[in-house]
Amino acid sequence: MLSRTADHLYWMSRYIERAENLARMLQVNVRTSLLPRAADEVDRSWAGTLAIIGQLEAYRERCGPVSPDRVVKFLAFEADNPGSIVSNLRLARENARAVRGTLTSELWETLNSTWLDLTGRPRGDLTTDGLIDFLEWVKLRSHLARGVTLGTMLRDEGFDFTRIGTFLERADNTARILDVQFRVLAPDGIRASTAVDYYRYTALLFSVSAFEIYRKVYRDRITPERVAELLLLRADTPRSLHRCVAEIDQHLQSVANAQSGETLRRAGELHALLRYGRIDLIVEEGFHEFLADFLDRVADLGRRIARDFLASTVS
């Protein structure tokens, strides 16, 4: 497969996944901001969200002080914010268009009609209702794109790079969601938070589609440590870090080439870290530090994948 084609497929699926996870982040914030709490706490949690996705500075520059409505508009709809949901969907479609011949017609039409629907959607000032609908729609379109990928794409390298893009982005985004939410929920560390805020942990679990999974797996009340375990270490949770890295590891193995040895080793090492990890030890050694290290490793994998497979300089 052409390196450039692989590159477009990889970025196409990263942008779709990023749009979906942004919608998830906004959803959890919208949900929790409906709970009774102090206004400055609400603002803090939005500021935290902006910071963790690296957009706080861009936001302040453009929009000034943090206010929930403004942040939502900035992250969801603003076409000239390259990190907004709208921009991510546009970039996904642009990457798809560049390799539309490699995509199945069904997948291209899905991404194209997502984009056409989006540009045809009324925006203006959104009510909370309208916003929740919009975020649900973004998730649905992402589910649809992924489903069409799974249901129609030949299982070749193109598929592998599409999946690597999805899971690399998801690993990164899930880690960020966890980091920002746990900082708000358990500011003094997971162990120290005695009064567990049932509603906020529930909102977090919902945001990564893991509430029902939690119930099924633990059949017990919600505790912070189990939430962390579920979303970091369990391989059977579809959005957990372990699951994401397992997928990356597997798909990297099937595209291995002459220069990718070290990249594969690092993916395997990260996989092992999650596979044999223990949540009590992670919490003891620092939950935030673990996530920060994880994000560094994921970023490193992204750079190495680009260099080993996607750059048009190999000759």
Binding site: R4, S105, S312
Partner: peptide, 29 residues
């Protein structure tokens, strides 16, 4: 390209070495 099942290449995807033309692919030239 899709209907024929062949690669859709841009100039940057091709290079010439020793009089032969190659594509840059994920598995090398």
């Amino acid at each position: 390209a899709q209907q024929m099942g062949i690669e859709l290449v841009e100039g940057q995807d091709l290079f010439v070495r020793d009089g032969y033309v190659y594509m840059r692919t994920t598995q090398g030239p």
